[in-house]
């Protein structure tokens, strides 16, 4: 009894230490990672909180005051329908972040569950799931997402799901691969011998071990989702107007690239900065959580 308690405590302590160490490596990894984390936090905070403090309306139009230059009233000027570009950037950031977070989370949830099922049960279930994964991975992601978007329509929800579905297979493959690898490991074999139930092994050993890779993949996919959304908007299968997203702001302002380049450049820069931030934070997480993954993700 006493021994077990002690063991648990040691384990807890070790975990805590490990976590602290990860955090230290993550934030100690130079100014870039810190900066990018700050940017991400800033984007999220601004898009969530600013509308509460400021009186921003992304859709109200001032038809007389179209394509106005930046001013005290309109910080980024107005667009081709006299809408406040700053408000649209903030609200657009909300939608873009939401689409990418929801799509990423959806993909991660579905992918992890399917991957676990495949990796754990094996047999025909596993084969079916893995075959489906291979099939979807053989169709270029962009093309697949485009078709799904065409099937499901142009609402925020359907686009989110379309982007999400496109990302599911990468998770399945990763989780499945990790599990297959871990299954061979000594401690899992030992646990099985000790007689722990499959489910217990799953949650106690397999998932925690796969966690670092998953979190990194997740972060990088968030950036990818934003990229996909903007490309779909450019190709004409994006979210319905007047909802602002950074992607459709760029593509709508495309025709004004000569007249008012800032309309495309501001959201364009937001997209690029956000994706860079996601990528670099993803790299930072990878290095701190599991340096062995370097070069594999």
């Amino acid at each position: 009894m006493e021994y077990e308690l002690n063991y648990n405590e040691i384990q807890k302590e070790a975990k805590k230490k490990n976590r602290q160490q990860s955090l230290r490596i993550f934030f100690g990894r130079g100014v870039t990672v810190k900066l990018c984390s700050a940017i991400l936090v800033l984007f999220v905070v601004l898009s969530l909180l600013l509308p509460l403090v400021m009186n921003l309306d992304p859709n109200s139009q001032d038809l007389v005051n179209r394509l106005a230059a930046p001013s005290a009233e309109h910080w980024f000027g107005t667009d081709y329908l006299g809408r406040d570009v700053f408000a649209r950037i903030i609200y657009g950031g909300r939608v873009s972040l939401m689409v990418s977070l929801l799509a990423g989370t959806f993909a991660a949830a579905v992918g992890i569950v399917l991957g676990l099922i495949a990796g754990f049960f094996g047999g025909i279930v596993s084969r079916t799931i893995m075959a489906a994964t291979d099939v979807i991975l053989s169709i270029p992601n962009m093309v697949f997402t485009m078709i799904i978007a065409a099937i499901m329509g142009r609402s925020v929800v359907s686009l989110t799901i379309a982007i999400g579905i496109g990302m599911v297979p990468t998770y399945i493959r990763m989780v499945n691969g990790q599990i297959l690898q871990l299954k061979e490991n000594d401690y899992v074999v030992a646990s099985t011998l000790v007689g722990q139930s499959s489910l217990k092994i799953l949650f106690k050993h397999l998932l925690p071990n796969a966690f670092p890779s998953l979190i990194v993949l997740y972060t990088i996919n968030l950036g990818n989702a934003i990229m996909t959304e903007s490309s779909l908007s450019y190709l004409g299968v994006g979210i319905n107007p007047p909802t602002a997203t950074w992607g459709n702001m760029v593509s709508d302002a495309y025709a004004y690239l000569y007249l008012a380049p800032r309309l495309a450049i501001i959201p364009g820069i937001c997209i690029i900065v956000l994706i860079i931030a996601f990528n670099i934070v993803g790299d930072g997480l990878r290095d701190s959580l599991d340096p062995r993954l370097r070069g594999k993700l």
Binding site: S251, Y254, I271, I276, N279
Partner: peptide, 18 residues
């Protein structure tokens, strides 16, 4: 490299054209 990874293709294409 980070910039290239993050720039949507259509933007690169059109800025190049201009």
């Amino acid at each position: 490299v980070n910039l290239f990874l993050a720039t949507p293709r259509f933007l690169t294409a059109i800025f190049g054209v201009i």
